[in-house]
Design a binder for these strands. Structure first.
Lengths: 258, 258
DNA sequence: GAGTGGTCTAGACCACACT
DNA sequence: GTGTGGTCTAGACCACTCC
């Protein structure tokens, strides 16, 4: 197989020896190789990747080893297995993945409308120290700040401010957002080839300030959830920071702890 | 192997045929058998279970099949594998598992104390309709209502009310709680053999009422997180319902989205 | 050294989807 | 029917822990 570092000469029989400081199991190396191919765009979101047999041949390992690599990547929501059809690159355009990170749900079994994203404005700016830290970029780097609302039916439930490194989202503008009638992440994926893998949220309770009270149409001082999110793409690279307030009248933040 | 239902005669070569309406892969049946053993108390939290080889022999399947069953149960935090030592039943007395479901963490910098549970009172009552629904028991069933606080160092951060089916927690009383100087779940495990597998939380923002403001030493009206939790044991059986308020000054609720 | 889980292989057969 | 992923087996060897 092809190895991913210089300790190639330490291998025998397609195995690395323990001495190597960069030793890792074969299936993890395969994972890394598949990840490279994804990053490079060789296989795009929504597409099928080669069959396990083909990948096994390509990497000169057994099918079982490829299988274990793919299993883990499927657990990580990077790939999706479909029996009889093949293995697909996960995509935000898949309806089931569309609002994967939105934990806010309506009370009762209320058969709800899908949430709808309403862009408010979109402007260029320089990263402040907090945004720079969260996005792991240099302070004062160019960024895009997007403000938007999320509505369930006619109710405004979320007001957001979203910080994006301009380098990654070159050309993003308000009109593009207004025309798009699906989730933000599906736009980012389609337009910039971005795939969100995981996110981390920090949640507090805050009182609605003037701006929030107007946007969410609640009295000033109403308790709201303050939700801050950093979102990561392949290789744990942060590519979005957002902070917003959620109204929790008739809605709640649902979290499964495992 | 031993099968778990009456369709035994449909098997050949240790495999069930597709015709059987209760067909499931062998490794899932093994999972179920291991779960039975756990429920029955054959292996207790913190103890080692038999080796993969022994289990394979016991169930007359290959080691690989047992391995796959154990793999999934390890992912579910039911078992814990330790290379070279064996496979253990997960336990709340393990320091790393102690506050597994507590998502509240101090803001950076703060080198935090471990949270400490302070029982306030513990009384018998009858389940109201909401508690009954959450705990999946009959309305008016006997329950225990426990009120307590959680402190980080000297700061009161969480005020809780915990609803427990009396049948499961027979003999629980205030003194027992006061004497115990570790997590609640480790007490429940040690005393009642209970093992919490997963939980679900519903989170809202609320204003501190009189009682909450006194307990948490914040002004009335302060925005707080309202957190409601249902906790499940083996087989998704609910065994605890709690609702409480979290102060989020200097602390936040941290959630990893995958 | 003995015993445990961890990795890797090779091969068989099953379940499912497309054509 | 053909090709895909899903299950199961058997056996080899590696890595870790404890005696």
């Amino acid at each position: 197989m092809m190895f991913i570092d210089a300790s190639d000469f330490l291998c025998s029989n397609a195995r690395m020896v323990q001495i190597s400081p960069t030793f890792s199991p074969l299936y993890k190396q395969i994972k890394e190789l598949i990840l490279q191919a994804l990053k490079s765009g060789e296989w795009r979101p929504g597409q099928v990747i080669p069959s396990e047999q083909e990948l096994a041949a390509r990497f000169s390992v057994s099918q079982g080893t490829v299988r274990k690599a793919i299993d883990e990547m499927a657990t990580d929501n990077i790939l999706i297995r479909r029996q009889g059809r093949g293995t697909y690159v996960a995509s935000h355009t898949d309806p089931r993945q569309m609002f994967r990170f939105l934990r806010l749900v309506p009370e009762e079994g209320t058969l709800s409308h899908h949430p709808k994203s309403i862009p408010v404005d979109c402007r260029r700016a320089k990263a402040g120290s907090e945004a720079a830290r969260m996005l792991n970029i240099a302070p004062s780097s160019p960024i895009i700040i997007l403000r938007r609302m999320l509505k369930f039916g006619d109710e405004p439930i979320v007001a957001d401010e979203i910080y994006l490194p301009e380098e990654i989202y070159k050309g993003l503008n308000l009109e593009m957002l207004q025309v798009w009638n699906s989730s933000l992440y599906s736009l980012f994926e389609t337009r910039f080839g971005l795939r969100m893998i995981r996110a981390q949220e920090r949640i507090r309770a805050v009182a609605a300030d003037h701006q929030a009270s107007e946007l969410l149409q609640v009295p000033e001082g109403t308790p709201l959830l303050s939700v801050e999110r950093v979102t990561y793409t392949y290789g744990d690279k942060p590519v979005e920071w957002r902070r917003g307030v959620y109204s929790t009248v008739g809605y709640y933040y649902l979290n499964d702890l495992t």
